[in-house]
Design a binder for these strands. Sequence first.
DNA 1: TTGAAAGCGCTAACAT
DNA 2: ATGTTAGCGCTTTCAA
Lengths: 337, 337
Amino acid sequence: MADKTGQGKNKTISDVANELGLSKTTISRAISGKGRIGESTRKRVLDYIQKYNYKPNVIAKGLAQSKTYNIGVVIPDDSNLVELPFFHSCLMGICETAAGLDYDVIVTTVSEGDLSLIQRLIDNRKVDGVILTRTLFHDSAVQYLKTAGIPFVVIGSVEDDEIIQVDSDHVSACFEMTSILLMSGCKSVAFLSGNQDHIVNQKRYEGFVKAYKDKKTTLDKSLVYLGMNSKGLVQRAVDAVLKRNVDCILCSDDNICSMVLAKLNEDGIIVPNDVKVASFYNSAYLANYNPPITAVHIDVKNLGAMAGKRLIDAVSENETIMKTQVAYELFLKKSTM
Amino acid sequence: MADKTGQGKNKTISDVANELGLSKTTISRAISGKGRIGESTRKRVLDYIQKYNYKPNVIAKGLAQSKTYNIGVVIPDDSNLVELPFFHSCLMGICETAAGLDYDVIVTTVSEGDLSLIQRLIDNRKVDGVILTRTLFHDSAVQYLKTAGIPFVVIGSVEDDEIIQVDSDHVSACFEMTSILLMSGCKSVAFLSGNQDHIVNQKRYEGFVKAYKDKKTTLDKSLVYLGMNSKGLVQRAVDAVLKRNVDCILCSDDNICSMVLAKLNEDGIIVPNDVKVASFYNSAYLANYNPPITAVHIDVKNLGAMAGKRLIDAVSENETIMKTQVAYELFLKKSTM
DNA sequence: TTGAAAGCGCTAACAT
DNA sequence: ATGTTAGCGCTTTCAA
């Protein structure tokens, strides 16, 4: 069969060693920077491999060190249109840090609790660690990775201090958002949230309640609708809060927000004239909406980048930080003016 | 340092060989199915590795065979909101076939002609081949991969028969769509296309012209706007064709379509009452729009899946098909009724 | 400061 | 039908 690369064989470390009249060990040391080596020889080697464009075979290196220099990224197979930008930006961020640290990113999917693909990845020893781009309340993937003893980090929060997590402070974000709404003329703001099994939703609700308490305003519980995970539920909730003449509807995520907006649109209700709307987080989806929607903004690419950094720290000898918070920002737009 | 997996060492092929009183070769043969081996020993080995859950180390296998069992997928870093579902679905499709054939997917990005990341991937020999999820007219990535001699497939079309490509038949899709529009009461349909450097846009235009010719209708060239790659251009084009009282605006892609719809919406022009609108392809974006938009539908996940299959065929000993067309379908919806 | 040799876990001639 | 022996391209003791 013909040579696959059409380029002739790749240079190996032995080739370099021979051509330079040195041993493989010395070349290895020059490249890795580990072990003693004369400054002049190091320079000679480095110049040579630069000139002849020698690149070490990462796979072979990995085999010798029981490493892969790959990290796995698990993305849900069932994400809908409005969630998509989140996972995409995460992935872009992860890829960027990974490449910078000379790691590669293997993506795999998980659909509806079916762990077989992530299991395959682990069994095949293709990755040094894994990033979960979303976590559920009792997350089987988290359980699996933990008992398997694989280094991993989650994007989002879990109630387990032994797990490396990167997230933003949802409680205070929602607290701030609610406070601003309350102080800028809204007498009553309704809160529509998704499944409370999601920790992020619990936290946002917590911030919402806290803001009411902080303003010493009594929170009318009939303005709070949790577990709105279907179009029908959202529609009825919107009808209900509208009847109570709320000034503003605060949505716990963009998905709910998009359903709220659709419902409002159908009913001919104008944002912000008839009712204000705010959400988390400021995906391109909401930013491009007309009118643009006030939302807590998170730099998701950076979120991914941090997650990548934490994981690679963890799989290297480095210390890694268990819990990292990424900044958020309140973007006040036309929908609440 | 502590054991990284916390699970004790992984079994190796030697372990299995010793415990079974056989040689490594025999175990290898039993697993791979290559080479002669007694039916009874094969069964004994297979049972054993099943029982003790032995998984061969794919990395080591790869090193011995100069393979990685990874494929690289290049996605553009600059895709906008409406293009996102395309790349995501592609990726899902590729992941699915890859996993089924025991390959993994390494993703990397390319932004604005900067090939450094894909070059890195190749230099590090982390993949057996590459899939390009989009191609431009004079595509530097295509050039690079070709001269590097790396097996690769493009999703989309290029004018080079030596390159493996998977795409749908844009000429005939656009021909059909235009014909149907013309025959269902539209006297004049305008055509707004993006950059004609993109081969797909050339092909769609070709189909459009062909349909007019086929219907023996004279095509008024002032209804054709090519190279509409900015919001401003689209807006002026819409103004222009509206003045000429077109019945329908046919958009060459969803991105243009979304700009057209935004413009129409701003001007208070109702679809389909005032003007009909149709597009390529039927992303979730258009399908969820109100009213839903008539469009050529492509099963993008399947597109990705086919690309994955072709590439893996190419990097295995198998014959691979150079050009594969995936089916399309016309989805007629409210926007043209 | 440098090198020799063994080994990472597998495959693939080449025997037997 | 099965085993022996070399590698694949690198790292890493251990010597010199």
